[in-house]
Design a protein around this nucleic acid. Structure first.
Lengths: 193, 193
DNA sequence: AGGCGTGGCTAATCCCGTTAGCTTTTGGCT
DNA sequence: AGCCAAAAGCTAACGGGATTAGCCACGCCT
């Protein structure tokens, strides 16, 4: 029997794909093994069990989200940056609900956990989307938390199909971005003396 | 051996309590049975399995949330209503994270599912918190979705301990409410002619 | 007193995660 | 080319949870 040629990255990506397809909660060692054409115990040569696999998927997803947000924010300014970041995150969650769900339940296992920098990059990118609003430094953390909350909440509710009549969800999303944009303007710390 | 005197409601409440204590994801038939001093199979006389139990917990939680929001909004006006609803929901999630998590993953099983009216009541109450802003009817649905998203996102992130330095989370929450309140004002459809 | 439905129990099955230990492939080294 | 150790896959086995089947006792109700 020829070897399957697996490694941790392959297993993680397969798990991530499966999570997107069947839902993160349905992810199991068995389905991953089956998808890879391998018996379940073989996975343990590459990954430390289901918890470890989930954690790796979370790191992968957080990294991808960070890249997507970074790209979206990069070069954009003002409302374009906010809009780009918001749409990038929402698009990611819609396309990769399982991966995103993994990031939600993941918790760092220690100070050297690769999850930490991956998440930090996400926060940094989101922060960048707010940079041009020139907020009072005291407001920055609050605005960032608000932005995270809305985007996370909206994406989560949408992914769970919790909005009724999903016809104009796009419209609602744009409306929300506009609302945030308008509210954030006029809060700049730069005031004419 | 004397009977335990169980019924569906008792089992559901015990499950809900356990979900709050150990986390919804850790809820199992076994722990519920153990807590009730009963063997696992006995629970099946009252509840149709773990999926059914989870669903019942979701209905219970949605009902409680609806009541909490209804009480908070009742009689309040303007910012007080918004503030009351927001704090009521957040308090519920903090005190009952397991119950709330049940509502997140629950899906109606059919058109007669008791989950549907329970959720509707939540939406109605949230809607009521926005009533005094006298929004343009076209904006109402968007504003409601935004409010749901922020509150759900904020509470979820807080429950998952995802905010760094949890010192001033209260402050952030108040800031967010203020932001929403200010943004919602001036959007009223009632304009002087 | 007796009968019967209800609610609990035991036994058994299935599936999943996980561990142990065997075997074979593979690729580097001589 | 040939050897050999590590890596990677496998089978077997265990533990635990969900679920079902079928048994039996309690206690209401007449």
């Amino acid at each position: 029997m020829p070897r399957a040629g697996l490694d941790p990255a392959t297993v993680t990506e397969t798990g991530a794909d499966l999570a997107d397809e069947i839902g993160f909660a349905q992810l199991s060692m068995s389905v991953v093994a089956e998808r890879l054409g391998v018996k379940t115990p073989s996975l343990y040569k590459h990954v430390d069990g289901l918890a470890d696999l989930s954690h790796r998927i979370a790191i992968l997803a957080a990294t991808e989200v960070g890249e997507a947000l970074g790209t979206a924010v990069d070069g954009a300014t003002g409302r374009e940056a906010l809009d780009g970041a918001a749409r990038a995150l929402r698009a990611y969650v819609v396309q990769h609900p399982g991966r995103y769900a993994a990031t939600v339940s993941a918790r760092p296992t220690g100070p050297d956990d690769a999850l930490i920098p991956a998440r930090d990059r996400v926060l940094t990118a989101l922060s960048g989307a707010l940079a041009d609003y020139d907020l009072d430094p005291a407001d920055e953390i609050h605005a960032l938390r608000m932005l995270r909350s809305v985007l996370h909440g909206f994406a989560t509710l949408e992914a769970a199909d919790s909005f009724q009549m999903n016809t104009d969800i796009d419209e609602s999303f744009t409306w929300v971005i506009t609302f945030l944009d308008q509210g954030l303007r006029g809060r700049g710390s730069a005031r004419p003396v």
